[in-house]
């Protein structure tokens, strides 16, 4: 912060948002068309993804350059912090919708289908003998036979991995505050490596789940009734966020290598670190609610 502006920095025009808009149009049109079985869908999707990546590089590139040039003052820094905080708040609510679906299904839907509350006749007439216990793929046993995912083995190892990555990023954070560059780079590198390892193991776990029981798998798919739906929706969206978080960590790691952050001025680092902690806590919630309780 050797030289900061006394004025709030306001860019005069920027091409990146409109590029992002075009990317979204191509991407959304592509996915929707692909779901409808239209041949153009895939191409549009691919084009959208490419433009989106181009936009992300361009936009973040500009912001990083402006930051390094010292154009941002304290007030701009605060705007970024607040923006990040409220973005994460919206992410929390997004996950809340899926957790809500899990709780509602377990605490209300299944007991009711099993005849609890005033639903005796629903149960008696529609699905006599169905017991609303968890886990369940419903009275019609949608998706066929499956085994639930237990907490031991990969899930427990994955939890240990993600928690360790939380420890390493905290050490890196301490190192950054203390101005210890070597430690910072080492432990930040470890963090994203652990993140990628987590994603890899999660993919292995999914493959294991998707195999038929006869083949030594679990026979558990997205289509395995409400249990499969909530399991894959929650862990899948979390996996997406881990991938995103790991990508951001890698970007930040390169910025650390270039020496972009100082013990006093490192919002980029703190924002990503906080995001990583958020992803980590969501996993812990998943581990508790999806695998244990």
């Amino acid at each position: 912060m050797a030289h900061t502006s006394d004025r709030y920095y306001i860019p005069h025009g920027s091409p990146w948002p409109i590029v992002g808009t075009v990317a979204l149009l191509l991407l959304m049109f592509g996915v929707a068309s692909a779901l409808n079985g239209a041949a153009i869908g895939k191409f549009s999707m691919l084009a959208g993804a490419v433009v989106l990546l181009f936009m992300l590089f361009g936009w973040f590139g500009v912001v990083i350059k402006e930051s390094v040039d010292g154009i941002y003052n304290q007030q701009v820094d605060r705007s970024f912090r607040m923006g990040m905080a409220w973005f994460i708040a919206s992410e929390v609510m997004f996950f809340a919708a899926f957790f809500g679906a899990l709780f509602y299904a377990r605490q209300i839907v299944l007991p009711w289908l099993g005849g609890e509350s005033n639903n005796f006749f629903t149960n008696f007439l529609l699905w006599p003998g169905f017991e609303g216990t968890w886990p369940s793929n419903g009275p019609a046993e949608i998706g066929g036979e499956y085994k639930p995912m237990g907490p031991w083995g990969l899930p427990a190892i994955n939890t240990a991995i993600l928690l360790s990555s939380g420890v390493t990023i905290t050490i890196a954070h301490h190192a950054l505050k203390a101005g210890n560059r070597g430690m910072l780079i080492l432990f930040l590198g470890l963090t994203w490596a652990l993140g990628l390892l987590f994603v890899g193991l999660q993919a292995t776990e999914y493959a294991h789940a998707y195999h038929d029981i006869a083949d030594g798998g679990l026979g558990l798919t997205l289509g395995s009734g409400i249990y499969g739906s909530t399991f894959f929706m929650l862990t899948g969206f979390h996996g997406l966020h881990v991938t995103l978080g790991a990508t951001m960590l890698i970007v930040i790691w390169f910025r650390c290598l270039k020496g972009h952050f100082t013990p006093e001025n490192h919002f980029g680092f703190e924002g990503v670190a906080w995001y990583w902690h958020f992803v980590d806590v969501v996993w812990l919630g998943l581990f508790i609610f999806v695998y244990w309780l």
Partner: peptide, 16 residues
């Protein structure tokens, strides 16, 4: 994608 969030037969619920 075959999920059953809003399908009672699969243990979900349209009311959800």
């Amino acid at each position: 994608f075959g999920t059953s969030f809003f399908n009672a037969a699969g243990g979900g619920d349209p009311v959800m």
